[in-house]
């Protein structure tokens, strides 16, 4: 029973969020057309020149160095199946979202597993989470952008990271 109650509560909260968002819908719809699918690096993140993939470098403006995340992205993009990557790291976590080339999406789950184990080997001191979900990609892209432009406190970053991780595990 407690599990059930929790679920209901959660869905209520979700619902409220949806209602709040509805007010912005018309405006957001317009923006979405320009945003969808493209990498928007207007915030000063340096992008790679290679047109084959989508890589961003987050400079260290924030108090938490994103060097690990940048390194992880460079590693992943060496794989030919990967065409885009976003990553954020905290002191103990590494959160990565990847975009897989369309024709390789049939092997999506397997690639996700392989990349996770690769990264786990490489960054042994971090807890690695890899996702191929578009939503996670968008969330991490936004978080990267905030890290680039604003000073995000470590506490805030932890909170955001945990929120995104929760989204990944939210199955249905």
């Amino acid at each position: 029973m407690p599990a059930f109650a929790f679920h209901t509560y959660k869905s209520q909260v979700m619902h409220m969020k949806q209602i709040r968002k509805k007010a912005f819908l018309p405006a957001l719809l317009l923006i979405s057309l320009s945003v969808t699918g493209c990498a928007n690096n207007e915030d000063g993140r340096s992008a790679s020149d290679n047109p084959d993939y989508d890589l961003t470098q987050v400079s260290n403006k924030s108090e938490i160095s994103q060097e690990i995340a940048n390194q992880a992205k460079r590693t992943i993009l060496k794989k030919q199946e990967v065409i885009g990557a976003r990553a954020v790291n905290t002191s103990d976590q590494l959160l990565v979202a990847i975009e897989i080339r369309q024709m390789d999406r049939f092997r999506l789950k397997k690639l996700e597993k392989n990349i996770t184990s690769d990264l786990e080997k490489k960054f042994k001191d971090k807890k690695v989470t890899v996702s191929t979900d578009k939503k996670i990609y968008l969330e991490l892209d936004e978080l990267e952008s905030r890290l680039q432009t604003k000073d995000v406190s470590e506490q805030k970053l932890d909170k955001e990271t945990n929120r995104i991780k929760k989204l990944i595990s939210d199955e249905a």
Partner: peptide
Amino acid sequence: STFYIHFFHFTEQNVGN
């Protein structure tokens, strides 16, 4: 689906609903 993923808290996993 794309619309829900972009503007609501749905992931590819559960946007089907």
